[in-house]
Computed example of a mutant assay.
Amino acid sequence: MDLGGRAWDVTELKGKVVVLNFWATWCPPCVEEMPALQALHDTVDDDVQVISVSVKDSAPAVRRFVKSHQVTFPVLLDARGELASRWGVKSVPTTVLIDKQGRPRRRITGTVDWVEREPAGWLEALRR
């Protein structure tokens, strides 16, 4: 579920490239990466969906963070870390890039500057 109460299912996103980012409000590298994710969200076409999953955070903490950092892409709550575990996430930040067929294609552990050339290439390759 996201902060607005919507349930998300990756299978509903087939046909789009998905940037699935696992993060936490208490994680300094995650906080550092968030503006780049927002910039990515603000600049991509409709064929790319940025979604973040807040791991082991309370809903009020995530709401405060989203408001103060002006995050406008979907933020899902994973208070117990169950979703992160199912995706094999061992540390945050971790991002999984999912192709248009719904298959995970790349896993990145650590921060990424999503407006740089290399990450743009990753996404472009998945768009084809």
Score class of each variant (00 low, 15 high):
Arg80Cys: 00
Arg107Tyr: 14
Trp8Val: 06
Asp9Trp: 00
Arg128Gln: 09
Pro74Ser: 00
Ala79Val: 03
His41Met: 05
Arg127Gly: 02
Gly5Ile: 05
Val19Ala: 04
Gly81Arg: 06
Pro104Gly: 10
Phe65Val: 00
Gly15Asn: 09
Phe73Tyr: 08
Val66Ala: 12
Val50Tyr: 02
Glu124Trp: 05
Val17Tyr: 02
Leu37Ser: 04
Asp45Phe: 09
His69Met: 08
Gly102Thr: 09
His69Pro: 01
Ser68Asn: 04
Lys90Val: 09
Val71Pro: 02
Asp46Ala: 15
Thr11Ile: 06
Arg127Ile: 05
Asp45Glu: 09
Pro29Trp: 03
Val31Gly: 06
Glu82Cys: 07
Ser85Cys: 00
Arg6Asp: 13
Thr95Leu: 11
Ala59Leu: 07
Ser91Gly: 01
Ala61Asn: 11
Leu40Phe: 08
Thr43Asn: 08
Glu12Leu: 01
Gly121Lys: 11
Lys100Ala: 08
Arg86Leu: 09
Pro35Thr: 01
Pro29Asp: 06
Ala36Asp: 14
Val96Asp: 01
Ser52Tyr: 06
Val50Ala: 02
Ser91Asn: 07
Cys27Leu: 11
Gln49Ser: 14
Leu20Cys: 02
Glu32Ala: 13
Val112Lys: 14
Leu40Trp: 12
Ile108Met: 15
Val71Ala: 06
Asp113Cys: 09
Asp78Trp: 15
Gln70Met: 04
Lys90Thr: 12
Pro28Glu: 11
Gly102Leu: 10
Val62Asp: 06
Ala7Leu: 09
Leu76Asn: 06
Leu3Met: 10
Val10Leu: 08
Arg106Thr: 10
Val92Asp: 03
Asp42Ser: 11
Gln101Glu: 15
Val112His: 14
Val66Trp: 05
Glu82Asp: 14
Val19Gln: 01
Thr11Val: 12
Val89Trp: 00
Val66Tyr: 05
Arg107Phe: 11
Val75Ile: 14
Leu76Trp: 03
Val96Lys: 03
Arg127Thr: 01
Glu82Phe: 13
Leu77Thr: 08
Glu12Pro: 00
Val18Pro: 02
Gly88Ile: 04
Ser52Glu: 08
Ser52Lys: 00
Trp26Phe: 14
Lys14Arg: 15
Val31Tyr: 00
Trp8Ile: 02
Pro74Lys: 06
Asn21Met: 05
Val53Asn: 04
Asp113Thr: 10
Phe22Tyr: 09
Ile108His: 15
Ala24Thr: 02
Ser91Phe: 11
Asp45Asn: 13
Thr95Tyr: 12
Trp26Lys: 04
Ala125Gln: 13
Ser54Asp: 12
Asp99Asn: 15
Arg127Gln: 10
Ala36Asn: 12
Pro119Phe: 13
Gln101Pro: 08
Val18Thr: 04
Val75Ala: 01
Arg86Gly: 03
Thr95Gly: 13
Gln101Tyr: 09
Lys90Gly: 07
Ser68Glu: 14
Asp42Trp: 12
Val55Gln: 03
Lys56Cys: 05
Leu37Arg: 03
Ala79Leu: 05
Arg117Gly: 09
Val115Ala: 04
Gly4Gln: 14
Glu116Gly: 14
Asp78Leu: 07
Ala120Glu: 15
Met34Val: 11
Val44His: 11
